[in-house]
Nucleic acid binder design. Sequence first.
DNA 1: AAGCACACCTGCTAGC
DNA 2: TGCTAGCAGGTGTGCT
Length: 285
Amino acid sequence: MPELPEVETVRRGLERFVVGRSMREVFVTGTRSVRRQHPDELVAALRGRRLDAARRWGKYLWIALAETGASPGPTAVLVCHLRMSGQLLKVSPPLAPPPPHTHVRFVLDDESELRFVDPRTFGELFVTDELDQAGRPAVLAGLGPDPLLDGVDARRLGELAARRRVSLKALLLDQKVLAGIGNLYADEICFAARLRPGRLVSSLGRAEVARLAAAIGDVLAAAVAARGSTLRDARYVDLLGEAGSYQDHHAVYGRAGEPCPRCDRPILQTRLVGRSAHYCARCQR
DNA sequence: AAGCACACCTGCTAGC
DNA sequence: TGCTAGCAGGTGTGCT
């Protein structure tokens, strides 16, 4: 499931292999992946545009568009969210036929193709020209700070935690609090912070909040360095189809019954805010 | 106001 | 062996 580290890895791939190219043609099939606007509108906004930059905020990804040749036209961006099963893949010639669940194809000016593949069709693409002063899509204004781009403010986190009656798991998953953490990294962060995912956040002490803030930054940075997590069943791969390696460093996620890497007691699995949660009852309080 | 359950999907897996 | 029910989860919506 693409979360911040996976989306960041895809972004870096776009920056390296796609930025600077132009879109020769765009093909949209099906009705699910482009649903905020008519596909014709998206195609018209993209055709002939140069891909100028790749940016990210939480799990949202976008590509800044520029006119080719002539003076810079009105700035617009192509926004993408991979949700559960979305992939952006760059395929160079000779072009294999698009795999099943390929919903959008961008033909680039070097004869390569960027593809949006998404079996579960939760992911989406849209074009917008409504940007804030920092050049971010205005529709994303509700997102909280990005832990990687903005850092984690322990004081703000502590103040938020003090006045909310939710579990730590729910707080970490709330994209208005911090943007980019999903179910997998929420569990890994809780383990690194030695806090149970079910802990009520209003009960956290100052030292515990400090541990939490540090763990958020540490876990996400390590996961980005490992190019994200590719699970057995999940289909996350980077722009060129390469798997990540952070799954080899998971302490708790998907490891129910296996020994805790710190104390050897079996990892427990439970259910919290409708999600699976994994933790060590001895190491996490 | 804020927290919660549910819908949206398809592929995989456990269990019969 | 073959079928099916259940599970996986990010976000938006609607209910309590």
